[in-house]
């Protein structure tokens, strides 16, 4: 027998749910005409039908995995590329800050001021590692 799809399982669940509703209504509407045993039997029957519907919905939700495996992989891949591009663009600011530190260091060397050179190297190193 061919395997049922998640959509077909849900449809089956819907049918069981509708069937159980009819059984439940029958029991409530005819309560006074039913013997204790009959009432209990119909109640159990109703419960079993509801359990079938319940299980079919759960199984359908699990089976959907078969339909989405490839899509999940595609989206994961695109998301990873999106995040890479985002981080690349964020890095541009870092490059600008490093360039500014480079200019400061150049100016400090021109000024021949050892303290300014030392400060500029620290700044460059901070921006590089930051």
């Amino acid at each position: 027998m061919a395997k049922l799809s998640s959509q077909q399982l849900t449809e089956l669940g819907d049918n069981f749910l509708a069937f159980s509703q009819s059984v439940g209504n029958y029991r409530m509407e005819n309560r006074s005409n039913l013997t204790k045993t009959q009432n209990l039997e119909i109640k159990n029957f109703h419960r079993t039908l509801l359990n079938y519907a319940d299980d079919l919905y759960t199984t359908s939700a699990k089976l959907i995995m078969d339909d989405i495996q490839t899509s999940l992989e595609t989206i994961k891949e695109v998301t990873s590329k999106t995040n890479d591009t985002f981080h690349k663009l964020k890095k541009v600011q870092k490059v600008l800050d490093i360039a500014a530190s480079g200019v400061t260091l150049g100016a400090a060397i021109f000024s021949k001021n050892p303290q300014a050179i030392s400060d500029a190297i620290t700044e460059l190193s901070d921006n590089w590692n930051g």
Partner: peptide, 10 residues
């Protein structure tokens, strides 16, 4: 909608 919500009907 088609599965979880229907469990509420159950």
């Amino acid at each position: 909608v088609s599965n979880l919500s229907k469990k509420l009907d159950v």
